[in-house]
Design a protein around this nucleic acid. Structure first.
Length: 207
DNA sequence: CAGAAGATCCCCT
DNA sequence: GGGGATCTTCTGC
């Protein structure tokens, strides 16, 4: 199993966002392991990018982790109710990250199904199967990613609460680029094609 | 300390 | 595809 290392994450954010497609995100504790294949990402290129939380070089407690070297988790609350999972990219001092927007469930489908719909996987309707992890907030619920998993180093295993991404060799897909979702306020950055998806998968958040 | 806005989801039509 | 839910985070007074 080939776990992505520091060198993978400290590269430029668009490259990292593209290459994360097809890789498998894992959340592992003493109690459970849960995993999903990344099928949709977005690149946030602060401080220039007006859609990024770090735009203009803003430093607040929330975004501070974006300034660290690549490979750390950045998890924030959105709309008061949901979480979004990002992976910090680039060298220390460059506040950029890749947002994971959608996954294809891979491991521990019952765990995901129980957390999302409070019933085992076999009882899900076809629509519920498709909606398990097809959005940034949904995948955080399914993967049990929350405040406690913020600022975790994906390159070093702590043995207690680990997040990492591995490459299982899956390359059989085409990539598509499109504008990012729900960033209407980002002015000239609204139309940047920095959203990347695996073409044809049913698990992306939107067509 | 109040007010506003938000990298979303769910339910309804 | 439209609107409400719901509350953290930040900003400005």
């Amino acid at each position: 199993m080939n776990i992505l290392n520091r060198d993978f994450y400290i590269r430029d954010t668009i490259t990292v966002s593209k290459e994360l497609l097809g890789k498998v995100l894992v959340h592992q504790t003493a109690e459970y392991t849960v995993a999903g294949r990344i099928v949709e990402t977005e690149a946030y290129l602060g401080p220039e990018d007006k859609a990024a939380h770090s735009h203009g070089g803003k430093v607040t407690p929330r975004v501070e982790i974006m300034y660290s070297q690549g490979g750390y988790s950045y998890i924030f609350t959105i709309y008061g109710m949901y979480q979004c999972f990002n992976i910090v990219t680039e060298k220390q001092g460059t506040p950029q990250a890749a947002l994971i927007r959608a996954l294809e469930p891979v491991d521990n489908l019952d765990f995901m199904a129980l957390r999302r719909f409070n019933k085992p996987y076999v009882d899900l309707t076809s629509k519920e199967v498709r909606y398990l992890t097809n959005g940034p907030g949904k995948l955080c619920i399914a993967m049990d990613l929350g405040k406690a998993q913020n600022k975790i180093d994906l390159c070093v295993r702590n043995g207690i609460d680990d997040i990492y991404v591995y490459d299982d060799g899956f390359r059989d897909f085409e990539m598509e680029a499109s504008p990012r979702i729900n960033i209407d306020y980002a002015e000239e950055y609204v139309d940047k094609p920095w959203r990347f998806t695996i073409k044809g998968t049913k698990y992306v958040s939107r067509k």
